[in-house]
Design a protein around this nucleic acid. Structure first.
Lengths: 236, 236
DNA sequence: GTCTATAAACAGATAGAC
DNA sequence: GTCTATCTGTTTATAGAC
């Protein structure tokens, strides 16, 4: 089992490092085995801490779960900021006013950054696993992440899509097209095990991401072209 | 908790119905809570059976897990047959010999049937949840399903893609394009909770599937057009 | 084939020494 | 703040009655 303690084995009295080690170990074990199945003994051992420290720092197992959820929510927020821009929450109107070519470039770049993050960053595995568990058995953490991060990001992408194609911003068609675009990227992370087997890839590195990226960007550009033609036709 | 017994409460001596009730209850509880977290007491209660019956019929909890995996594998197989044709295992060479227009029609129809199954059939929820758990913490069940069903289906789709576009059948590009196509459909099932919130859909019924289908089919046709143009250019 | 009773291992929580 | 020791409840597995 992985060691999340990241510190000397000689009894360290640092409260914050123990807290953090417990959260990271909890995130790992909860993610792999699920909340009920992961034992506090197992988590404490992975963190290099004592069993009683969970009760001391978080009040109990349930408190550690909440702390883990808050940590991931923060992580997802900072990732969204680095992938879709530092101000994605408020950039909707600005995005809608962009020239078509610039909006398209932003969409393509965002897509590439998202794919790179999903497939190359180790954190992504943690986040995706956490999100899948939340989707399979939803808790309040999902509400927080949806309203606070997913919805504003999706709205901004719709604004960009609208600016790039001339289609109406919040139309059903645009919202679904953005989902289809995101779905392709996310799927390659979720189904990575299966993709690797089928592609005979030993690992997914720069070269493999480049291959996937080429297809997804081409698909994105085709979709945008089609919608731009359709919107142009509507105007005539 | 749901009752999977489907039989009278008066002590029934039917071994097969007990077996089946235990498998269905196990599938449900393993799917919702995970293997370790679901207790045999809970499963036996949901099946309307005694705790000891799990040891008797399956040799223990692990045996029940294997029986559930085999049941789902069979279920996925029969679904794949109804969606992608009764003989998908052996139809690869036949698919490769189809005229381009017919191959394209088969791809489009398969995609629509897959989407309809994923979003409209209640079984799909069970299957997808089971597959996600297997992908998050893989067991031998994943090997069985990959080799027995997923790989042959994917190969047949690649053969159809090749016939529809003129691209080389087992090229990296074709295999990835097929993954991207499947990913869009599967994603709408996995992220259904999130999609419903964003679309303000109370449920996903015929009308909603039709909306999604329209986008995905258009994306598929665009991808095929692009690859057909590129393959035509290569030949000159 | 189904049931009750029970064994042996494990869980989370906590009191108290340091 | 960290540790050991222990309490209480729950887990899976199984022996044996019917």
């Amino acid at each position: 089992m992985q060691d999340w303690s990241k510190r000397k084995q000689t009894g360290e009295g640092d409260a914050d490092s123990t807290r953090m080690a417990l959260i990271e170990a909890g995130l790992d074990r909860f993610g792999v085995k699920g909340y009920d199945a992961a034992s506090t003994r197992e988590i404490a051992a992975a963190a290099g801490a004592n069993i009683a420290s969970i009760a001391y720092h978080f009040g109990g197992k349930e408190g550690l779960r909440r702390a883990c959820a808050e940590y991931v929510a923060g992580l997802i927020g900072s990732v969204a900021r680095s992938v879709f821009g530092a101000d994605f929450e408020k950039a909707e109107s600005a995005a809608a006013a962009l020239p078509a070519a610039e909006a398209r470039t932003e969409l393509v770049n965002g897509m590439m950054r998202l794919l790179r993050f999903l497939l190359l960053q180790p954190q992504a595995k943690l986040i995706v696993r956490f999100m899948l568990r939340e989707i399979m058995s939803p808790s309040i953490a999902l509400d927080i992440i949806y309203g606070g991060i997913f919805r504003p990001v999706h709205r901004r992408l719709c604004a960009l899509w609208s600016a790039a194609t001339g289609k109406q911003m919040e139309s059903e068609e645009v919202r679904l097209a953005v989902f289809a675009m995101l779905g392709q990227a996310v799927y390659f992370r979720i189904a990575q095990e299966v993709v690797q087997r089928r592609m005979d890839w030993r690992e997914v590195g720069e070269a493999e991401v480049e291959s996937i990226s080429r297809i997804l960007i081409a698909n994105l550009n085709d979709s945008l072209d089609r919608d731009a033609r359709a919107a142009g036709g509507e105007r005539k």
